[in-house]
Design a protein around this nucleic acid. Structure first.
Length: 285
DNA sequence: ATCCAGGCGTTTA
DNA sequence: TAAACGCATGGA
């Protein structure tokens, strides 16, 4: 995938070819919560900018952007310069890994914004994906900035400054429940942008210490943040679905240390596969 | 009605 | 250090 990507400008859009990305899987696999099926494709707001993405046979069209912007931002956002098949090749000798890899072919780990990812995954704890999306949408509508695209008005994810003054009463309309106080603690501790630089330059263990100093961030939420916003592909977040797989498929004998530097990518294939049929009993091939 | 969701903080043993 | 428990909310 790495070398064969081609991009070209068409009006207010960029046509990308030579990538195996599957937009539907990528946007619905539980890593992000603000991309919506919309007409012929998907609409999202990223970095305060509305994007509309349409799947094609050998890639996708990204509307409302330019080639230079694509090269500087979106190629990295969609993680197009990695060959996942190659990166997890040693682990694909495991039949279950291979099965999940085949099933989730086309998933890419999005490189998301730190502040948004931190708040999002604080809100995700002991919650379900549909309701997480709902809460985040309310958060953006209440505190973000309106951005127009064609005939629609959408809302950017609020910045730390936009949330600086909020209190528990302000958050009540989100119906986030007991997570309100965690969000408030995170907002307060993330006012100084230096903390993002510190996490970025820290080793993963130290980055964990910093993030877990925020209320509402424990081991699992922390690992999602590290994987989805800080490009720590070696972490392997263990939520209820992953634990279920470790139990049902591997009989609780699972060597996480064998997953390699890109364990997080494998984790995402597992998650997508495990969640696909929520009532299915998963068994080892 | 009871259980569950991309778990965590606090208390108890 | 480990296990138990409560927690807001809404859909199944």
């Amino acid at each position: 995938m790495t070398t064969s990507i081609k991009i070209r400008q068409t009006n207010n859009a960029v046509q990308v070819s030579g990538t195996d990305i599957d937009l539907c899987k990528t946007f619905t696999c539980g890593q992000c919560f603000r991309w919506y099926a919309d007409g012929d494709g998907w609409t999202g707001v990223v970095r305060g900018q509305v994007l509309h993405a349409v799947q094609t046979d050998d890639g996708f069209i990204l509307e409302n952007t330019t080639v230079s912007q694509f090269q500087s931002i979106w190629a990295d956002y969609f993680d197009l310069n990695k060959d996942y098949k190659k990166l997890i090749a040693p682990q694909r000798t495991d039949p279950f890994v291979e099965r999940c890899f085949q099933y989730g072919a086309g998933i890419r780990i999005l490189h998301q914004e730190p502040f948004e990812t931190i708040l999002t995954f604080i809100l995700s704890a002991n919650n379900n994906i549909k309701r997480i999306s709902k809460i985040i949408e309310a958060l953006c509508r209440e505190f973000g900035s309106p951005v127009q695209y064609k005939d629609k008005i959408l809302y950017s994810f609020p910045t730390p400054v936009q949330l600086a003054g909020v209190d528990a009463d302000d958050l009540q309309p989100l119906h986030a429940g007991y997570r309100d106080k965690y969000v408030l603690d995170a907002v307060r501790k993330l006012q100084n942008p230096q903390i993002f630089n510190k996490i970025n330059s820290a080793k993963t263990a130290e980055a964990r210490n910093i993030l877990c100093g925020i209320k509402g961030i424990g081991p699992k939420v922390c690992d999602c943040i590290l994987l989805f916003a800080f490009q720590r592909y070696e972490v392997f977040p263990k939520d209820v679905w992953i634990k279920r797989i470790i139990h049902d498929v591997y009989a609780d004998e699972f060597e996480e240390s064998n997953l390699g530097k890109y364990a997080g990518i494998i984790q995402q294939y597992f998650f997508y596969y495990g969640r696909a049929d929520k009532n299915a009993t998963i068994s080892y091939p």
